[in-house]
């Protein structure tokens, strides 16, 4: 089928089998290698992407389900020059070890903060509980999401002060 959706801010149009897994479409056709795959059965969360702002597992989605949607992967959250506060906080607070879960984890955290700008630690735990990490024990991941929330709040404060 002809498929059109927005990937990390750019419109993509391509021909795809409608039942192709979204993770394969993103990785193999569109080169979005930041989207990882750890299980293919929706258990590990490594393939998480934001679809219309909501965390989804791209290994459990089919290509056709992306039609007309807005998809954001970890690479779409921020860049080296301008990382997303979550990405910067992950790096600064030691939330990254092997890093294979990290893109999906960052997507989950960014999705949480978009919805709940001031989450408690338990909220963060719940929000990332679908993303397995075998390296960190999660402590520093939760620290980082807290720090990102603080930074986002400070930014928002500044913007409001400027008005």
């Amino acid at each position: 089928m002809k498929l059109s959706f927005i990937l990390n801010g750019a419109t993509v149009r391509l021909d795809a089998e409608p039942d192709r897994r979204a993770v394969d479409l993103l990785r193999e056709e569109l080169g979005a290698l930041d989207v990882k795959e750890g299980c293919g059965t929706g258990e590990c969360g490594a393939c998480s992407v934001l679809v219309d702002g909501v965390q989804k597992l791209s290994c459990l989605m089919l290509a056709a389900q992306l039609e007309g949607r807005t998809v954001v992967t970890a690479a779409g959250l921020g860049t080296a020059e301008k990382p997303h506060p979550v990405q910067r906080a992950f790096a600064e607070h030691g939330a990254v070890q092997c890093g294979f879960c990290t893109p999906g984890m960052a997507v989950a955290a960014a999705g949480l903060l978009a919805e709940n700008p001031a989450p408690a630690r338990e909220d963060i735990r719940r929000a990332v509980s679908g993303n397995l990490c075998r390296c960190t024990g999660y402590v520093k991941i939760i620290d980082a999401v807290e720090a990102a929330a603080r930074e986002l709040a400070a930014r928002k404060g500044k913007t409001e002060d400027a008005r």
Binding site: L33, T79, A80, G94, V96, P103
Partner: peptide, 27 residues
């Protein structure tokens, strides 16, 4: 968290951005 903070790991930001390439990404 302990102070003063350690400098971030050299690999951390690239991994958080999804820019690191693993054997899994070799195609």
């Amino acid at each position: 968290p302990s102070l003063p903070p350690s400098p971030p790991r050299a690999d951390a930001l690239a991994k958080a951005l999804g820019a690191e390439r693993y054997a899994f990404d070799a195609r």
